[in-house]
Simulated assay, not measured.
Amino acid sequence: MLGKLEQPEIEALLSRQVIGRLGCHAQGTTYIVPVNYVYKNGVIYAHSGPGKKIEMMRKNPKVCFEVDDIKNIFSWKSVIAWGTFEEITDIAEQEQTMQLLIHRVMPLVEHATDHPSHGITANEYDIGDKIDLIVYKIRIDKVTGRFEHH
């Protein structure tokens, strides 16, 4: 059976997942990339180093975001959200966002020191000043969800 997810199921799926696919479009090019994220109160929070997706979102802040939970080809849930990219420049908000990300992602990391390049590590001194982290949020304007199960 195919169907639409109701808002509580959409919220649950967005809250439960930790990796989503971010789609952005600028100057005739579309780019989709997986990102670690945290969802809270209608907002997706994430971070990145400088690169293609940040450049594109700065040019065109309208983005699309997708998450799914696939058990098999006939049992899955998927959410697609459309929203607006906003770079977080306030230091306090950046710190709060990084704390949200660290608390959400760290339990899924095999070794606490494995990912300092992402700014997500058990020891802040592992990060140093090796990377210029860009912290951002996506304010969701519209969201849809679908499912299939037998």
Rank of each mutant, 00 (worst) to 15 (best):
K4W: 08
K4M: 14
E6R: 15
A12Y: 13
S15V: 02
R16T: 14
R16F: 14
R16I: 03
R16A: 15
I19W: 11
R21D: 03
R21P: 12
L22M: 13
L22I: 08
C24I: 09
A26T: 12
Q27P: 00
Y31C: 09
I32P: 07
I32T: 12
P34V: 11
V35Q: 05
V35N: 01
Y37R: 09
V38Y: 07
Y39N: 09
Y39V: 02
Y39A: 00
Y39D: 04
K40N: 10
N41C: 03
G42T: 03
G42N: 05
I44E: 06
I44Q: 04
A46D: 01
A46Q: 03
A46V: 06
H47Y: 09
S48D: 04
S48P: 10
P50I: 05
P50Y: 11
P50S: 07
P50E: 08
K53I: 12
I54M: 05
I54P: 07
E55A: 13
E55M: 02
M56E: 09
P61H: 02
V63Y: 08
V63H: 10
V63I: 11
D69S: 15
D69T: 07
I70P: 09
I70E: 03
K71G: 01
K71R: 10
N72F: 04
N72M: 02
W76E: 08
W76Q: 10
K77S: 14
V79S: 05
I80S: 07
A81I: 06
G83E: 12
G83F: 08
F85G: 05
E86A: 13
E87Y: 02
E87M: 02
E87I: 02
E87H: 01
I88T: 07
T89I: 13
D90N: 15
A92S: 12
Q94W: 04
Q94T: 10
Q96P: 00
L100S: 10
L101K: 04
I102S: 13
H103M: 03
H103E: 15
R104F: 07
P107N: 09
P107H: 08
H111G: 00
H111W: 04
H115W: 11
P116S: 13
S117E: 14
H118F: 13
I120E: 01
I120S: 01
I120N: 01
A122T: 02
A122G: 09
N123P: 00
D126C: 10
G128A: 12
G128H: 03
D129F: 11
K130Q: 10
D132W: 08
I134S: 02
I134N: 07
V135I: 15
Y136Q: 04
K137R: 15
I138L: 13
D141A: 09
K142T: 14
K142N: 14
V143P: 01
T144E: 08
G145W: 09
F147G: 03
F147T: 07
F147W: 14
H149Q: 12
